[in-house]
Amino acid sequence: MTSELLDQALIEEATKKSGLIWVRGAGAPAARALWHVWHEGAVCLVGDGPGEQPLPGLTDGGFAEVTVRSKDKGGRLVAWPATVSELAPGSPEWEAAVAELKGKRLNAPDGEEMPRRWGRECRVLRLVPAGSSAPLPSDDLAERPLPSPATTRQPIPAGLPRLLARRRKGK
């Protein structure tokens, strides 16, 4: 009993404090780094819509493996199994989860319109811990980033080092 309570406390505290978690859905080839919120005993995620994070392998009624990192050092703290449920748009649970998620969503293109867009075009998922913590994965979980219009892999402009050096001399 005490071991289960300690596991639950570790899962909750680590997940609350981490800005990213790695989630591997059933059948997904690799874990994905996802932003989230901890709300009422579960992880809440939004995605699978235009401009939002993809949620591969996460299906309503399915299972997922969640790995949580340390916010300070970035190392793995705890891994835990989860059951996945999709929240119905407009339901009280959906409204509560979206209110929490909205505060954590960075760089949203549509501000106050965002919850309505999520209701039309995205999925809001709830990942509930299903049992005690699991052994940490032995592999490194490193994956090459997926292609995205949000990433740029271009050399820095030629004049940037001189500009930065000039700013440092001026201080």
Score class of each variant (00 low, 15 high):
7 D>I: 02
7 D>P: 07
8 Q>R: 13
9 A>Q: 15
10 L>R: 07
11 I>L: 10
12 E>W: 02
12 E>M: 03
13 E>K: 11
14 A>S: 15
15 T>W: 05
16 K>G: 04
17 K>I: 00
17 K>L: 14
21 I>E: 02
22 W>G: 03
23 V>P: 04
23 V>C: 08
26 A>G: 09
28 A>L: 11
28 A>F: 09
29 P>Y: 00
30 A>L: 07
31 A>E: 12
31 A>P: 08
32 R>N: 12
34 L>R: 00
35 W>M: 13
35 W>D: 03
36 H>D: 06
36 H>C: 09
38 W>Y: 05
39 H>N: 08
40 E>H: 05
40 E>N: 11
42 A>T: 05
42 A>K: 02
43 V>H: 05
43 V>C: 06
44 C>Y: 08
44 C>K: 06
44 C>G: 00
45 L>N: 01
47 G>W: 03
47 G>I: 05
47 G>P: 01
49 G>C: 09
49 G>S: 07
52 E>W: 07
59 T>R: 14
59 T>H: 08
61 G>P: 12
64 A>G: 04
64 A>K: 01
65 E>L: 13
67 T>Q: 13
69 R>H: 10
70 S>V: 06
71 K>W: 12
73 K>Q: 13
74 G>L: 11
74 G>D: 11
75 G>D: 15
77 L>G: 01
82 A>C: 14
83 T>H: 03
87 L>R: 03
89 P>F: 07
89 P>E: 07
91 S>L: 13
92 P>C: 10
92 P>T: 08
94 W>E: 06
95 E>G: 01
95 E>S: 10
95 E>F: 00
95 E>L: 14
97 A>K: 02
98 V>T: 05
100 E>W: 00
100 E>V: 03
101 L>K: 02
103 G>N: 08
104 K>R: 15
104 K>W: 10
105 R>H: 10
106 L>T: 04
107 N>K: 14
108 A>R: 02
109 P>T: 11
110 D>Y: 10
111 G>H: 11
111 G>Q: 15
111 G>I: 04
113 E>I: 04
116 R>M: 13
116 R>H: 12
117 R>E: 09
119 G>R: 01
122 C>E: 07
124 V>N: 06
125 L>K: 01
125 L>C: 04
125 L>I: 09
126 R>N: 02
127 L>I: 12
129 P>V: 02
130 A>C: 12
130 A>L: 05
131 G>L: 10
131 G>I: 11
133 S>R: 15
135 P>V: 08
135 P>Y: 00
137 P>T: 07
140 D>W: 00
141 L>S: 07
143 E>A: 12
146 L>T: 09
147 P>T: 01
148 S>R: 11
149 P>N: 09
150 A>N: 08
150 A>Q: 14
150 A>H: 13
151 T>P: 00
151 T>F: 13
152 T>F: 11
152 T>V: 13
154 Q>I: 08
156 I>K: 01
157 P>Q: 03
159 G>V: 08
163 L>S: 10
163 L>R: 13
164 L>A: 10
167 R>M: 15
